[in-house]
Each structure stands twice: as structure tokens, then as C-alpha cells.
Amino acid sequence: MRHINIVDLQRYRQELTEAEKSLATIEKYIRDIKTFMHWLGDDKDITKDRVIQYKEYLKTKYKVSSINSMLVAINRFFQYLGWNECCVKGLKSQQQMFTSESRELKQHEYEKLIETARRKKKEQLALIIETITGTGIRISELVYITAEAVTQGRAEVSCKGKWRQIYLTKELRKRLMKYCRQKEIKAGPVFCSRHKNPLDRSNIWSMMKKLSKEAGVDPGKVFPHNLRHLFARTYYKKHKDIFYLADILGHASVNTTRIYTRTAGANHIRMLEGLKLVI
């Protein structure tokens, strides 16, 4: 009989921590495992057939990418427990060439968010949005934007066991230095709560959602990772160097970077029409 208990989950969390997985990754894995446990209900016995049934259930609720991500989480947990016979295959899908236009944050929408934040006297939020979009960093890396980094003009960022340098543009650095002077921030992370603790992703996420409504921008487009996508698309459109972009974003594979440089299908249509091949 295969059963998951809280002790197993606690030990697995510790295992992920010792493997130096990011906090966001750990929380996601644990959340996905708990979702599976909740689905099991009273019938807690885990077999491969039950996991296959769960996969079928996920098909009715989530997109393919989300399903595969959730299956990876429970498969790795099974492997940790030595339950390899319970692992199931992910769903096959062809990588999409284009992003949904309804999800793509446009330049004018980004500018509207910044303008609204400043009009509402939300300078910290405006700078957070500009910093993520202007550097392409992950929200988890925002803690490395310190007063010292602003002074030096660059930050040393660590993610997934790798270090890389993030450079701050002259204008961004100027605005951050002014903010630090106003808030008397002389050392440590620039973006903190009133209690001087670094802001976490949930704080920033909720602030952005509220701002999106105030700015009249679709809330479905306004979240930290979409700002990173905007940086990637803008950079690639101007420089067409996907390998250098991969280094900037901290991607181990260029294939991951390609996902970030997708544009809406409407842009592709315009490019095709520009060829003038249908006479």
C-alpha cells in the first residue's frame, strides 16, 4: 500500500532545500503534491492506475504545460520515495511558435502602468516594474538589487546555483539612487516593506494586480514574469542576438529563451504580408 503522509512531505521539503532548490521551486513542488493528495480524497492508496486517472482529471482543468509541470512535481516525489513504478509520462505537445495576443503586455500598456503608479504616488512599485523590465531579472532576484549594487551600477545575482552580473542602465541607476536617498537606504535590498523586510513575490503580485485595474490594463497581462518577457522581446527585436539574451536572462538553454521572444500571431501575419509574394 502506497500512502503519502505529512512526515514524507516534510522530509522531501528538507531534501529540496539541501539540494539548493529555490524557495519558489520548493513551494511549487509541495503545492502540486498537496493538490494530488487532495484529489485522492478518502482513497489514499496510490497506484500507477490512480496516477493515470489523476492525469486524465488534470486534462479537464489545466493547459498542457501546467499539467506536465504538475506531473513532474509528483514524479520526482515518487522517485524520492522509491516509488518509480507510480511515475507517469507527461503529455506530448508541439511547441507553439506564437504567444497569445491576449497575454502579451505591450509597450504602451507598460508605460501606462508606470505613469499610473507615479500619479498614484506609488514610486516604489513604479521602480520595481522598471527594474524588472529594464534588466530582465526574475522577481526572486529582486533582492539582489541593493544600495551597494546601485552605487556600483551592477548586481551579482544568484539563481539555481549560478551567478551572473546584472547591469543597471544610467537612467535606472539615477532613479534608484534618488529613491535610496529619499528613503535613507544606505545598505541592503532597495525594495523593502515598512518593516525593512525584502518584499516577497506575493506582496509585489498583489500590488501589480491592483495597479493594473487602476491603469485600465488587463490584469491577466500584469504579473512580474510578463515584465521579463517584455524585456526579452524588446531586446531581441532590437539586437537579434538570442545567445547573448540567454546569458542576460540566465537561461541554460537557448530553447528556453526562444519561448520568451515569441510574438503574437498578428505580428507574424504582418511579416508574411510584407513579403508581397501573393500577387
Rank of each mutant, 00 (worst) to 15 (best):
residue 4 I to K: 03
residue 4 I to C: 00
residue 6 I to V: 14
residue 9 L to G: 00
residue 11 R to P: 06
residue 14 Q to W: 08
residue 17 T to M: 14
residue 17 T to L: 14
residue 22 S to P: 02
residue 27 E to Y: 11
residue 28 K to N: 04
residue 33 I to M: 02
residue 35 T to S: 12
residue 39 W to D: 01
residue 46 I to L: 00
residue 50 R to I: 09
residue 59 K to Q: 13
residue 62 Y to K: 13
residue 77 F to V: 03
residue 93 S to M: 06
residue 99 T to G: 13
residue 104 E to A: 15
residue 106 K to L: 15
residue 110 Y to A: 00
residue 113 L to A: 03
residue 114 I to R: 10
residue 122 K to C: 06
residue 124 Q to V: 04
residue 127 L to S: 09
residue 128 I to K: 01
residue 134 G to T: 05
residue 136 G to H: 07
residue 140 S to Q: 08
residue 141 E to F: 01
residue 143 V to A: 01
residue 145 I to G: 00
residue 151 T to V: 05
residue 152 Q to F: 15
residue 158 S to E: 10
residue 160 K to D: 14
residue 163 W to Q: 06
residue 168 L to I: 02
residue 173 R to Q: 15
residue 175 R to K: 15
residue 176 L to V: 01
residue 182 Q to N: 14
residue 187 A to G: 09
residue 191 F to D: 01
residue 193 S to Q: 11
residue 194 R to N: 11
residue 195 H to A: 01
residue 198 P to M: 04
residue 199 L to W: 09
residue 213 K to C: 09
residue 219 P to Q: 02
residue 220 G to P: 02
residue 225 H to S: 07
residue 229 H to M: 06
residue 229 H to G: 05
residue 231 F to I: 11
residue 237 K to H: 04
residue 237 K to W: 04
residue 241 D to R: 08
residue 242 I to E: 05
residue 244 Y to M: 15
residue 247 D to I: 07
residue 247 D to P: 05
residue 269 I to K: 13
residue 269 I to C: 02
residue 270 R to T: 06
residue 274 G to N: 12
residue 276 K to C: 12
residue 278 V to K: 13
